[in-house]
Design a protein around this nucleic acid. Structure first.
Ligand SMILES: [Mn+2]
Ligand SMILES: [Mn+2]
Ligand SMILES: [Mn+2]
Ligand SMILES: [Mn+2]
Lengths: 217, 217
DNA sequence: ATAAAAATTTAGACTAGTCTAAATTTTTAG
DNA sequence: CTAAAAATTTAGACTAGTCTAAATTTTTAT
């Protein structure tokens, strides 16, 4: 069996590897897990001993197939629980991440299977992130950023790149909800902010900083 | 904040104190928590330092008010999650205890409150055990054992004293379900086994060993 | 190409929780 | 009441995970 801590390291390695498309560094992991580099090095040796990562001293780290499988299991549990918290318990999407960080470590195949069924086999979590399959595949999403959409195009809001409470609440206040269709009306040449029209007909101002973090298709 | 381990000790002290109606001994705790007496002694010192128990060396241990409050919170979470697992996810009542042992440590007031509401503020868990109130009161149940009921009496099956998978599955196979009404038809003078009539009209043989562990009212 | 800077690893230490073996206290039985 | 038995605590050690400070390796910039 694997500890909470090991599961968190695997998950973090998965995220960083995918974000940077390369070996993950000790420092990056230290920052992400709020620990010190020395602690990370210790853990990397343990994970390497268990064949969950490929690790050569000073050269960064990469998940093995087994390591990736475990990481995806944890991410699957995290996202399923987030769906539960929002859809069934009525939490706001900005409040669920922290709780899911704990729930994701409850290890029972049966529990995950039943939860998945109970939720209607959701494909995406409340933030639009795809839920890995039971067999450990991460579904591809062909999303682009709202900041890359041209004038006149109508797109559907599908997800967010930024998960902070502040950002998510800002979207709530702007009436930008996942699933809603928006049409780009103006793009400001100077600050790259965009003006989008939402279903109600109203137009909403979206700063470049926000548009960069909004996924659409 | 308190660790999983501390929460488990508090919960165990609560159970044993209520079962024995007296100070809880180091050995009893060691057996219950599957550790050794020496480990228990160490933990008792820590809990006493945190004012969660009253502890005098060699004299056994008792929860403080704060310790009892925490113990009841853990038990409340445990039982609410068991209700969720059975009522919402469709687990059998013999399968939920282990999973609830993990879920009970997820600490979020908001989560417990919402879960309670979502479940319809249940008063009892799937085994008939009362769910402590949000303010930390353990509801009284005036149940008696089926083995103490006299011939001719009609009673309702309300709970179990034994929680093992084997016992619960035995009840399933005997068609003895919580909530169902049974009438005692015969009591065997020699082995104290009882013959009860269930709603369908059929009679079911109940050994003394089983009757002792069945709560009714 | 080499020296300074940055990143990483090693060394040594600490905490929580556990263990075994030994010492101590309490209980029980004659 | 006292000696043996039982229960409990203490002593010393181990693992997982973390830390700081020092040593080492890699990268960067002259
Ligand atoms: Mn999340
Ligand atoms: Mn999410
Ligand atoms: Mn239980
Ligand atoms: Mn129960």
């Amino acid at each position: 069996m694997h500890s909470f801590t090991e599961e968190n390291y695997l998950k973090t390695i998965y995220y960083l590897a995918n974000r940077q498309q390369s070996e993950v560094s000790t420092n990056a992991l230290a920052e992400m897990t709020s620990t010190k580099a020395a602690s990370v090095t210790d853990m990397l040796r343990k994970l390497a001993d268990k064949q969950l990562i490929h690790y050569k001293k000073y050269q960064g780290v990469r998940l093995t197939d087994e390591g990736e499988r475990l990481a995806l299991q944890v991410i699957r549990r995290h996202r399923l629980w987030e769906v539960f918290l929002v859809e069934k318990l009525g939490f706001g999407w900005e409040a669920v991440h922290e709780i899911a960080e704990e729930l994701e470590h409850i290890r029972s195949e049966e529990l995950v299977t039943r939860l998945d069924t109970y939720l209607g086999n959701p494909q995406f979590d409340p933030h639009g992130d795809p839920i890995p399959t039971p067999t450990g595949q991460m579904p591809e999403t062909g999303y682009q950023k709202l900041s890359d959409v041209s004038i006149g195009e109508g797109v559907c809001l599908m997800g967010v790149l930024e998960h902070s409470t502040e950002f998510l609440q800002h979207l709530d206040h702007s009436n930008l909800t996942l699933g809603c269709t928006v049409t780009v009306r103006e793009i400001n040449a100077f600050d790259k902010s965009v003006l989008v029209q939402i279903a109600s007909g109203r137009t909403v101002f979206v700063s470049y900083e926000v548009a960069k973090n909004l996924l659409v298709n």
